[in-house]
C-alpha cells in the first residue's frame, strides 16, 4: 500500500465527473442491499414467518424501537432515513474487511456526504414539523446572544460526525494494512475482528447522534 489514505482514487471518468472508488463500492453495496432486501421481502407471511423473514423483522423492529427510544416519539416516519443510515454504515464499514475492497466510509467524502445529509435532513424536518419562524427562533434560545454559537454548533455537528466516522474507519483499515505488511497473514485477524466491532459501533454512534440531532430539530427531545 503506497498511496495515501487521504486520497480518493478515481476509477473512471463519466464525462467531466470523476467516478471515484467509494462511489463505485457504494453502488455495489446499494445493489447488494436492494437486491437482498427485495429477495428477502419477496414472500413475507403474517403467520409462521421463515428464518429470513424473522431476521428482517427483528432488524427493522429493533431499529424502529431504538430510534423511538432515542427520539421519544413514533419512529416510523424517520425509519427509512435513520434505518438506512445504520444499515449502510454497518455494511460499508464491514465491507473494508473484504479483501480487495475498501470501505467507502474510510473516505472523507462519504462521511461528509452522510453528515451533510443528516444536517440538511434535520433542518428540513425541523422546519416542516415546527414551522420556519419557530424553528429559526430556536437558534436564539435561550438568549439571542447564543445565536452565533448555535449556528456554529449545527456546522460543527456535521464536521464532528464526518471526522469521527472517517477517522475511526480509515485508521482501523490503515493499522490493519500496516500490520499486514509487517507481520504476515494471520496476525491482523484480531485487529480485523476489532475493526468489525468498531465498524458496528461507529454505525450505531453515527445513527444515534443523527437521531438525537433530528429529534432536537423536530422538538421531540431537548436540543443537544
Amino acid at each position: 500500500m503506497t498511496e495515501s489514505p487521504l486520497t480518493t482514487p478515481v476509477v473512471f471518468l463519466l464525462g467531466p465527473v470523476p467516478v471515484t472508488l467509494p462511489v463505485v463500492v457504494t453502488w455495489g453495496l446499494m445493489a447488494a442491499m436492494t437486491l437482498g432486501s427485495a429477495l428477502a421481502a419477496r414472500r413475507l407471511r403474517v403467520e409462521r414467518p421463515g428464518a429470513v423473514q424473522t431476521v428482517l423483522e427483528l432488524v427493522v423492529e429493533t431499529l424502529r424501537r431504538q430510534i423511538a427510544e432515542t427520539m421519544q416519539t413514533d419512529a416510523t416516519p424517520f425509519l427509512p432515513l435513520l434505518g438506512t443510515l445504520f444499515l449502510y454504515l454497518a455494511v460499508a464499514n464491514l465491507s473494508g474487511l473484504v479483501p480487495g475492497l475498501k470501505a467507502p466510509t474510510a473516505f472523507l467524502e462519504t462521511a461528509a456526504a452522510l453528515a451533510l445529509v443528516v444536517v440538511l435532513a434535520s433542518q428540513a424536518l425541523g422546519i416542516r414539523r415546527r414551522g420556519l419562524w419557530p424553528y429559526l427562533k430556536g437558534f436564539a434560545h435561550p438568549t439571542p446572544l447564543l445565536l452565533p454559537l448555535n449556528i456554529l454548533s449545527e456546522l460543527t455537528r456535521a464536521f464532528s460526525l464526518s471526522i469521527r466516522l472517517f477517522g475511526n474507519v480509515m485508521s482501523g483499515e490503515f493499522v490493519i494494512a500496516i500490520v499486514l505488511s509487517l507481520a504476515g497473514l494471520f496476525v491482523p485477524v484480531p485487529l480485523m475482528a476489532l475493526e468489525a466491532l468498531l465498524g458496528l459501533v461507529q454505525a450505531y454512534i453515527f445513527t444515534i447522534l443523527a437521531a438525537v440531532f433530528i429529534g432536537g430539530a423536530v422538538g421531540t427531545i431537548e436540543k443537544g
Binding site: 467516478v19 462511489v23 446499494m30 449502510y88 452522510l114
Partner: peptide
C-alpha cells in the same frame, strides 16, 4: 463530485430500502 454522488447515492438507497424493505416488513408487522 464524490461528496455529491455519495449524498445522492445515500438518498437513492433510502428510497430503495424504503420501497423494498421497510414498507413490506412494516406492513407485515
Amino acid at each position: 463530485w464524490t461528496l455529491l454522488l455519495q449524498a445522492i447515492n445515500f438518498l437513492i438507497l433510502v428510497w430503495l430500502l424504503r420501497r423494498f424493505l421497510y414498507r413490506p416488513v412494516l406492513a407485515v408487522i
